[in-house]
Design a protein around this nucleic acid. Sequence first.
DNA 1: ACTTAAAATGGTTACGTATTCATTTTTTTA
DNA 2: TAAAAAAATGAATACGTAACCATTTTAAGT
Lengths: 331, 331
Amino acid sequence: MVSSKDVAKYAGVSQTTVSRVLNTPELVKPKTVEKVMQAIEELNYIPNDVARSLVQKKTGIITLISGPLHNPFFVDTTTAIVNYVNARGYKVNVYFGTEDNLDSIYNSVLETRADAIILSSMLYEDDLFFKLEKRGIPFIMYNRKHQENRYFVEIDNVEAGYIATNHILTLGHHDICWIGGPHEISTFYERYNGFKNALKDSGIGINTVPAFFTNTKKDDIERIFEEILKLPTRPTAICAATDAIAIEILNLCLERGFHVPKDFNVIGIDNVELSKHHSIALTTVGLASEKNLGFIAIEKLFEVMEKKSTCIQQTESVKLFPRNTTCKKIN
Amino acid sequence: MVSSKDVAKYAGVSQTTVSRVLNTPELVKPKTVEKVMQAIEELNYIPNDVARSLVQKKTGIITLISGPLHNPFFVDTTTAIVNYVNARGYKVNVYFGTEDNLDSIYNSVLETRADAIILSSMLYEDDLFFKLEKRGIPFIMYNRKHQENRYFVEIDNVEAGYIATNHILTLGHHDICWIGGPHEISTFYERYNGFKNALKDSGIGINTVPAFFTNTKKDDIERIFEEILKLPTRPTAICAATDAIAIEILNLCLERGFHVPKDFNVIGIDNVELSKHHSIALTTVGLASEKNLGFIAIEKLFEVMEKKSTCIQQTESVKLFPRNTTCKKIN
DNA sequence: ACTTAAAATGGTTACGTATTCATTTTTTTA
DNA sequence: TAAAAAAATGAATACGTAACCATTTTAAGT
């Protein structure tokens, strides 16, 4: 492979000059620039970005640890993040984290010289946070936060849970239930708290309301849905902690011949793009602004990288998006 | 940042030995290994993967140029590809190519020392093919092919177009139409040929059947749908060249109060995961085997990288997946 | 024309690792 | 116990670039 040294020799200049032609051509005599450019052309020279990274101590790479794309939330955020990063001239190393592969992903990520890391896989109490701090690479979490309460962008999850539940209650549903996720994840913990707050404010005892917690895998949600069907009093409304869960519930309902919202009201949280599709038309709670959480997070991460910000602790406000999976209770 | 030299000094050995401890510990006396490992631990040493890449002339990075994720086909393939690559211990640089950013993506990609490239953005006549060959990095295309007819994995697109159209015709629909994409893309060109073949075999003149071609953007599909609604004889069935188009048509139908399949039959091609959702239940044509096209392609790419294969030209057979968006024509 | 400043270029080094080759140490064998 | 073989270690170098400092060339000012 041809190097800048080869170009230099061919053009009859020093390697330094070749480097300058590519990086600071204004410091080189136009005639020399031309000579070098021609050599580059003729030899088909392409600068070695690895060598450049080594000497400059930056790779131009951002690591993204996303959740899997079968969750439509991560479709939206991954799109926003990857496009933003590339538009800024950086590259993105993408990982899709699940229970099974997270350890291996963390190993890989911690050994990689990325310029920054953006991730959604953090638990509320997670050693990873400290490993990342120790590693010294700027990082930001989106959609989840760590108990250290730093470097995150989230929606107001408590409020989201509250609004969703309140919407359902206001529609006259009394027999409702909750499907959430593991409480080691701040998102699920807080949304469930919002759910409980809404019940409390409506004078409903939390113990009378069934709540289920899944690791958000398809099979797991199905198992829970079966349990719901076996409940002594079948709920008329299902509050899902995420649109991903809600949309899977929709699927399970239709699969079994139920009608939504006639047989079941379903509400989610996140307002993912897919929820807007008229075949889905999921009632949900999401960001009040037009922006996407991934976009907000990656924008902030660049601010941190550029030392414009030091610490990010951002909680975005939310609102209800009423669509067709909820309606007044039919008596 | 602490280097292997620092570790060496701290442990009282040479840098060579440190390198050996990490890469070929079986060549080092156990006692020395222990000594070095302790130094690594205490100094919190992390090998510099950039320096390693430079000397080894491989980066462990695969570049993926996918289409955008609002197309569910790319959700499926990106998932398969990223997960496969990571499982093999490689990293993935991901790009989502659209009309607007492809040039900039190609510039970035061609200047990057990736070990291989997997892409879906190739046109049938595309200079990129030759640039990639010149670059000397192994590459593979999925879902599209180049006129040079090398390094690709696709489904049998002609057959897919044929099967889809034939299904519609067999259901008794005479007033049908086609929504495809630009014919510079092999996929669209071939699927449309399948469509034409089916018409011909049914004795229908191709000129009597409306066909529309879009760049598959949302607005564009909407514009076409409006045109379809204005047609002198409104078709009872719409053949879409991809599930992405079909699902968007579904959306537009429902948005306007039409019922599918009562008012319009809709059929797609690709059998994307989303089409299986019971809210969508899209009739479509897809891979006969369980595998995902992205998975097949990335598997093949690794074969090429490992010199097990030299050239890949793979066309996978397809079959019909009848679901709820098509039905016998109601007279 | 002569000095001085500015512009242009080149030589050398650092980045941090793996690799090659040489040397030392240890073990095995006769 | 000496010689030979094997194991363990180290010194030096290459990878390809950018950056630093030094030097040469050109232009400007008097």
